[in-house]
Each structure stands twice: as C-alpha cells, then as structure tokens.
Design a protein around this nucleic acid. Structure first.
Lengths: 207, 207
DNA sequence: TATTAATCGTTACTAATTTCACGATTTGCT
DNA sequence: AGCAAATCGTGAAATTAGTAACGATTAATA
C-alpha cells in the first residue's frame, strides 16, 4: 500500500480547516471545485489527495462535508491531542501562549519554560512558566510531543538539545538560526525575516 | 535562459543567513558540504542551487563566504529594502512590531494599523499605529510592498482586500483562514495550529 | 614540475508531484 | 425509463525536484 505524502498531509490539514468552517455555516455538501476555490488549490489536486483515503464522494453531488472532515481527521490526526512545550516567553512566546487557536480540542499547550527569573512561576493563560532546568523532567511528565523554540538564536541549539533529550519528536523553530537534531526528529523552521524576503522575491521573479 | 525556481530562492535565503553568521565568525571560506551541514541540506543540492548563479566556487577550496553571500543577495534581493505594513496589533502583532529581525538593513516595518480606538496613536518600537481607514493612503505614501495579516480570522478577507487595493504584491497571512486575492498577489499562509498538526502528523507517518 | 587530493560544476538518472484526459457514476428531469 | 449534466476517481503524461556519478579544476606538496 502506498504511503501518504507530506504534501498531501499538509493540504489535508488545510481542507480540514476549511471543512470545519463550512460546517459552521451549515454547508453539508461541497464539491472539489468549490473546495479548491476556498483553499486556493485545484479541483484535480483535491480529488487526487482525497482519493488516497478511498472513494469518499458521490458523482454529481460532491462530498459530504462532515463525512469528508471525519475521514481526513481520523486518518491524519487519529483522535490525538497534540501536547506542546514552549521555550521562551518573550514577545513571541507570550503571543503563542495567548494564541486562541491552541485552546482547541486538537492542540494543548501544556508547558512553558524561560530562563529569566523574573518570569518564573507567573501564569499566562492558565499556563505556569517553569525554569528551563526542570524542562526535561516536566516534559516527560506531561507527555508533550512537540516543542516550540521561541528563544533568541544564540540559545536555540541548547533548547533543541534539551527537546531531543526530553523525547520530543517534532520541533517548530521560530529562532532565526539553524539547529541540528537527530534524523528522526522533525524540524520546521519559521523565520519571519526569511518568510518576508521569500514572498518579496517571488513578487520580483513571478512570470 | 532558465528562470530561477521558488525552491532555489527559498533555500538561497537560508544560505544567505548562514553565510552572514559565518562572516561574523570570520570564516572566509566554506565548502558545499559544510554549508549543507549547517543548513540541513545536501552538498549536491547546494552546488546545484549555486550553479544557477554561474561559476562561483573554486575546486579544492570551496566558496568565498563574502563573495557567495554577495552574489546570492545581489541576485535575489537586488539591494532592495522590503517595506512592511502590519494589520492587527494584538498579541502577535505586538510581537512582530518588536521582532528584532526587522531592524535589519533588508526589512523595514513602516506602518501598523488597528481597528481598536484604544491602540491608535500609540507607538511601539518607534512605529505609530494608525486607524485602518487611513491604511490605503498611508501604504501608498510609504511605498510598502508586503503586508502582514495579524487580525482575527473574521477580518482577514477585509484586510486582504485593503492590501490589494493599496497595491501590496505579497501578503503573509497569520490568520487561520483562507483569503482570496488576485492571481498576481502572492500569499503565504502561516497558521500556527496547522504547522503544529503538520509536524505532529509527520512524526506519525515517518517511515 | 608532476602528483595527489579535495571540491566544484554538470550531465544523466531517478523520484516525486502535478496536470491532463476521460471513463464511471449518480442524480434530476422529461 | 431513459437521457443529460455534473462530478468523482484514476491511469497516463508532463513537469518539477532531487540524487548520483563523474569529469574538470585547482591548490598543496614532494
């Protein structure tokens, strides 16, 4: 059996979000073309992605919104709640702690760490901030799976090492620096500067 | 002549960042293999990317750090300073306003807008916050090229429309919602929840 | 100056991804 | 019931991206 591709997964997450919004609007049917319009993809791409999960739609009608959402979610997220550990409670870290998208049923921020004594034991949005020294112990205790690096670049490798040690299998790195980790640890780098320069370059080189 | 690919551009931006760091450490030579180690890419990939810009390296030695950085920057960024307009000064917007990476010579945050009366006329990090009503006028005046959406999802389309009207050619959308824009406007969506679920899924499906 | 070892640059190959084209299916209509 | 229209699902073609292999080049060394 063919395994699912990363790209299909990422697009499916986008589809899921769109389907949730459609459900809120009581739209119970959706065609690949409409979903393409909403998500900025193409109808063929969507049908191809969905075909991985079997025959889900009905010709002439399209897909049942709820059914499609359930199928995608069940396969991709498998009823998991993702537990997050955050390192760095500066401006960005605070924004993440307060991010409304994490109060959902799928993602739960369970631990936050910082070096600065002044920030410790405070609570933001119901999450206590602990000293970095206790991080490995606490991450294991709360069973976090994914870590977020929101510290200055000079400390990012140090934090990455801690995360690996604590058993985190995925890392989102907001620091503008490369980190090195074992091959079985997934890293997604989000460097605001690079994102902006990337978009800008694309506007320059578009045909 | 073949045109440069988006992927090459994005990787080149990563190379540039790495080269800048190497320069700070007074490293004046770098091989494709070392650069691959740092950036998490492969040496072949790097040589292939760089080959687009001509013969830059010298066999047996590698690349001159400064020369390579200059070549990449000159081609991709063309000595431009990218001017940014920010919409939404909530938690995330504030973090962006204070983001140290934007005080560089390449990126300049030039305008910030919010709906809330209470936030107007305040100044964060030297940038005044203006009412959304004045945004089209001001964006044109300061010649911003790229817009950042950091407003709640229900307002994101409205903001996107304003950005298009004001002539912005690239948009970074932090709102967890899809926006629709003309084809010649580039959009990069960064949805924290989706990024996390994506990483998590990849850890689940890794072979 | 010839030799050696390292590293670049490039062509050919392989893999992954997207797009195309079209048959199959289903519903609604007459 | 039969037909028409819409939409799915999919194998094949086309495109794009990445990898491997290796010749070409250069600097260091004996």
């Amino acid at each position: 059996m063919k395994s699912i591709s990363r790209k299909t997964i990422d697009r499916a997450l986008l589809y899921i979000r769109a389907l949730e919004n459609l459900l809120k609007e009581k739209r119970d049917k959706i065609s690949s073309l409409e979903l393409a319009d909403i998500t900025g993809s193409s109808d063929v791409q969507i049908r191809k992605d969905i075909s991985f999960f079997g025959k889900v739609g009905t010709p002439r009608i399209g897909y049942e919104t709820k059914k499609l959402k359930d199928i995608l979610e069940n396969f991709i997220l498998q009823n998991n709640v993702v537990h997050i550990a955050l390192f760095g409670v500066g401006n960005l870290g605070k924004a993440i702690l307060k991010y409304p998208g994490f109060q959902t049923d799928k993602i739960k921020l369970v631990a936050a760490f910082d070096k600065a004594k002044s920030k410790l034991l405070k609570e933001i949005n119901g999450i206590k901030i602990y000293p970095v020294e206790r991080s490995v112990e606490l991450i294991k205790k709360v069973h976090a799976e994914i870590g977020i690096i929101a510290v200055p670049p000079r400390s990012s490798q140090e934090v990455a090492d801690i995360m690996v040690k604590a058993g985190l299998k995925g890392i989102i790195n907001f620091a503008p620096s490369c980190i090195s980790v074992p091959k079985n640890t997934f890293v997604k780098n989000i460097d605001f500067s690079i994102e902006i320069l990337s978009i800008f370059s694309h506007t320059q080189f578009q045909k």
